[in-house]
Design a protein around this nucleic acid. Sequence first.
RNA 1: CGGGAUGUAGCUCAGUUUGGCUAGAGCACCUGCUUUGGGAGCAGGGGGUCGCAGGUUCAAAUCCUGUCAUCCCGACCA
Length: 576
Amino acid sequence: MRASELLAPTLRETPAEAEIVSHQLLLRGGFIRKAAAGIYTYLPLGRRVLAKIEQIIREEMDRAGGQEVVLPIIQPAELWQESGRWEVYGEEMFRLQDRHRRQFCLGPTHEEIITALVRSEVTSYKQLPLLLYQIQNKYRDERRPRFGLLRGREFVMKDLYSFDLDQEGLNQSYQKMYQAYSNVFRRCGLDFRPVQADSGAIGGNYSHEFMALAAAGEALLVYCRECDYAANVEIAEARALPKAAAENPAPLKEVATPGQKTVTEICTFLQVTPDKLIKTLFYEADGQLIAALVRGDRELNEVKLQNHLNCRHLVLADPERVMKAAGAPVGFVGPVGLQGIPLYADLEIPYLVNGVAGANREGYHLVNVNPGRDFKTAAVVDIRQVEAGEPCPRCGAPLAQARGIEVGQVFQLGTKYSSVLGAKYTDARGQEHPIVMGCYGIGVSRTMAAIVEQCHDDQGIIWPLSVAPYQVVIIPASLKDDGQREVAEGLYRELAAAGVEVVYDDRDERAGLKFVEADLIGYPLRVTVGKRTVTSGTVDVKWRSRKEETPLPLEGLTAQIQTLLAREMEKYRLRG
RNA sequence: CGGGAUGUAGCUCAGUUUGGCUAGAGCACCUGCUUUGGGAGCAGGGGGUCGCAGGUUCAAAUCCUGUCAUCCCGACCA
């Protein structure tokens, strides 16, 4: 490719709208442009990176036995009504009507459509297992699209669905995908970690997320440095860590605490440590009021609470409703004497001796609160957020914490969709069974952004060779010098003919500008043709990721470059 | 959806408080000359319904009302 013909409009300045590095650099490097909030155009360079990532995914899916299909983006409402998700999905679904006023949506995901396909085409156990996948745009009308490609409303996703006879088959498919995902992200050059994850509204009971470690990530995860335990904090198991309490239970006492509402205020006022406090949080679980109790020095984890309650919607109750139910405003509510509101206590609560809690009377708190004696709980459950430094639930070593970008997730769905939509097979004895399903997603465009988050410096992007838009850029220092121009042209032709993905910067610009742009765009290997090329017959070769520049003789240069590229590519090969 | 902010040239922004003359700068773009190994210099040039709609006024980028869009924080989220 000649740079003079390439549409790669770089920006000198960082666009005001871009907050995080990947968004900034992808805009500045001329990879993407915004069309609307969360909706992007991919320019030639962006498209090439995307295609590289897609190809890696395709190879790994095919290797695992997947078959590629293309499912419709526009999907009929009927199918979604059948699965019950037409209503459940709510505002996040882009809906539209055709000229006959029939209802459709833009596919936010494809469980319905693929299950419908399989129910009509698969009837016998002989046709299973089956792994079907596609790489295609998804549409989700996010409440708040942000961070460029990391959370868009239109984005590229690979989704694979597995269909098996039984749980054992599903386990095997799941295992295959887990391995395939590890392969994909390794080949993309990502520093990633698979973590145990919540299966969320998509259903199912077993799930892992693949997290690209990055400060810009929206997800928080904990992992053990000693064993292989790693989990999204949403579901990370907490242990009860009771402080050794030597005291004996004392009589319950009400004390005036005028205006003292927050944990910090109360602790200062009453001269106690936060771990003595019982935080009482009211939630509406599918409309029903419940109270959750955690220690004052802990954070409640809503995902865990929701999973224990097994409810669909969980929201913090509004203050008025709390006032009505407890008889006191938020800040003065507590578990003692609450009538008709189930109490869900965190694992650590029962260990508290002489704790502090709201008195359910404005301006008052109770001291010497003793769980069991002073109030009864509906359940004692793990509902607090795990923090860095806590012991690993597997081996006890201190847990580390990190932020991650969720680039992939694998789910065991079981028969959630197949039973609702009637996807069944007949076994060898003529018995009908629902097909056992799994689903597996990779955010392709998000992966592209995640790579940039991890691979950049002050000058720009440093693409891993495996996903770079082009592998090599040739920069002639001066095009006015016929000698340089001829060598550069010739080298370009030779490399291109040898199948190397190469950009020849033939623009009538100063060399300095070309270097700056090459660094911004992030071509992995740079070949500079300059005065020395003409005088001593060498070019200067430099990796984007390294500082040194080395002279290489023109003789046999194409083969030499191919060798260099092949050696570098080894980094992204799978081991074993 | 709640809170905050911003919309002026392709990009980054000034001008708005206190209404006033032909709406500005830098970068980018076009032409010419010089320059040419890390975002060149000089000269000349093109590009704007000041987000949109309405209102107040002799006069609106500037004041008022409405509306749309975008960004950030939160809530939410296969």
